[in-house]
């Protein structure tokens, strides 16, 4: 688990600053960038996964039962899923903090 940048000391760095924990960027949550969040209407959803396929942030997961849901820890709120959904079952709602 990487520490915050400002806590790193010289001795903590690998030679050449190599990062040997693949994919550790997941600790960085981009979810707080969003000003709106996608919400699914499961009545209309045909479980096709178009939303999942077009998400630039891998922030859409498949739930049990085959419906999709955003991983709000990462979802940046771009709105691509809502725009691309074939049945238009996703709406972007304002993020309330």
């Amino acid at each position: 688990m990487p520490k915050p940048m400002e806590e790193y000391r010289v001795e903590d760095l690998n030679p050449g600053c190599v990062i040997d924990e693949p994919g550790n960027a997941v600790v960085y949550h981009t979810g707080n960038w969003k000003s709106q969040r996608p919400v699914w209407n499961e009545q209309k959803c045909i479980k096709c996964g178009v939303c999942w396929n077009f998400c630039p942030d891998n922030a859409i997961m498949r739930k049990e039962g085959g419906y999709f849901v955003a991983d709000y820890e990462y979802c940046k709120g771009c709105g691509i899923c809502a725009h691309e959904c074939i049945t238009q079952c996703i709406t972007m709602v304002e993020e309330v903090v």
């Binding site: 994919g23 600790v27 960085y28 949550h29 981009t30 960038w33 630039p56 991983d71 820890e73 709105g79």
Partner: peptide
């Protein structure tokens, strides 16, 4: 293999292409 937590802009389709 291109994980969440990357800092591309909202709606970046370059990140999508990489994915």
């Amino acid at each position: 293999n291109f994980t969440s937590g990357h800092r591309a802009c909202q709606g970046c389709a370059e990140a999508l292409a990489v994915r």
